[in-house]
Simulated scan of single mutants.
Amino acid sequence: MRIAVVNNFFPPRVGGSAHLASALAERFVRQGHEVVLLTAAYHDAPAEEVVRGYRVHRLPAFGMPQLGLSIDFDITFTTRPSNLRRVFRVLDEFRPDVIHQHGQFLDLSWLTGWYARKRGIPVLLSVHTRLESRNRAYSLLFRALDRFLVRPLIGLARPRFVIMDELAATYCAARYGAGEERFEHIPVAVDPEWCAQPPTRDVRAELGIGTGPLVVSLGHVIPLRDRTALVDAMPGVLAEHPDTKVLVVGHQYYDAYLRRAERLGVAHAFLSTGAVPRADVPSYLAAADVVAHDLQGIGCGTASLEAMAAGRATICAVRETNFPGVELRNWDNAVLVRPDHTEDLVTALNRLLADPEERRRIACRQRAVVLDGFTLDTVTRKHLDVFELMSASTPAGKH
């Protein structure tokens, strides 16, 4: 089978969807399929290269201007007539049986969606991020963008949707009018062996943390993962565990949590690394007693699943029904809190930090959850099964 993978985000750019697109493309090749990957140019990465058996095409792009707003993010755009021609040329030469798009509001999905409509190619669209905000003005803006821009553009190819959790299902139904008949329930994938590999750096020694309690919060700091919940919880945590440190690992696009920490008098408990190389992530996870990242009710993402795979007790603000077909049980194989709920988070952190044995028991069961349903092998097989069905249903001679 010939599979075209599409994502504006791709290494060397870091991020969950970038690394998932890369990992899946590699696994597709290992399974004997042909793959081409279309992405946006990023820094000094070559315009074309062969990566682990598949060809990567990086199209000329421009970055979103940084205006000092809380929605500033490192997004690159490719929409221009010359790139549309490039898309058609590359894909016509490759002749894909199916197109796998990552990200509904990224413009390479729109360009390849137009190609798919013209050529009659089936499309599978993975929804990694929902256009949502707790800020009323941004929320209204995002709803308008979804209704008047994203929905019409992704509708060109009438894709099937990869639904990674129950929140995505609700969102796609409400924003894009997609019903269950267009859903494929496939969770995000992680590599447990990579996550749990021996550390190559002694993070605690390098940062002067010592042996005290350490909460690691891994991932870019953006409004939907702003870390203010951790700040609000710290007075209650420090009252019982005064030596606790919180290590925030990721690029800071939004620094409201630092200002809040100063106001609450807990800034001394926070350390920030900025962006770190992907290869160093296992070392940061190995240093953690507890990991807390997804605390605002937007789901349990790649960073949290990687922490679980690494055998670290991980707190998330989701429900036990978050992953269809996966049974989460609070304080058994999961540690779940209500979104932005200070009392819940204080209780969970203090309980985990006070009882190393319970921490280890829960961490072991969380790793088992990942091994049972979130490995790259499992998720790759589910994608390929869907591709086969989609390709088989395409009328003969259509592409």
Rank of each mutant, 00 (worst) to 15 (best):
A169C: 00
V123H: 12
A310Y: 07
D289S: 09
H185R: 14
V36N: 05
R278T: 14
P65T: 00
I209M: 12
E132N: 07
E320P: 12
G250W: 03
P282H: 01
D97S: 13
G53D: 10
H341F: 08
V215H: 03
A286K: 13
M164C: 07
L59N: 06
A310F: 04
G179Q: 06
V87G: 06
E180G: 06
A169R: 05
T378G: 10
D243N: 13
E166D: 10
Y138Q: 12
E181L: 02
R95F: 05
R260L: 14
D372R: 09
R204A: 00
G250T: 02
R85I: 15
A116L: 04
E306A: 01
E327M: 11
R359W: 07
R351I: 00
V248F: 02
D202E: 09
T228H: 10
R30D: 12
H57S: 09
S393L: 12
V162D: 05
M164F: 08
L218F: 15
F77N: 04
R201S: 10
I222V: 15
I154N: 01
A173E: 15
A18L: 13
T78K: 05
D74T: 07
V190Y: 00
A256T: 10
H19A: 09
D146T: 01
R365D: 13
Q104M: 11
F94D: 01
I222K: 15
L20M: 04
P395F: 03
D202L: 01
S393Y: 11
Q197T: 12
E320D: 13
L153C: 05
F270L: 12
E358F: 05
A368Y: 06
R319C: 00
L345H: 08
D280P: 06
L59C: 10
I99T: 15
D232H: 15
E388T: 15
V337Y: 10
G210L: 04
Y115P: 07
F94H: 03
A137H: 11
D74F: 02
A269D: 04
A168L: 14
Y115Q: 03
N333T: 04
P122Y: 13
A168Y: 11
A174G: 04
T380S: 14
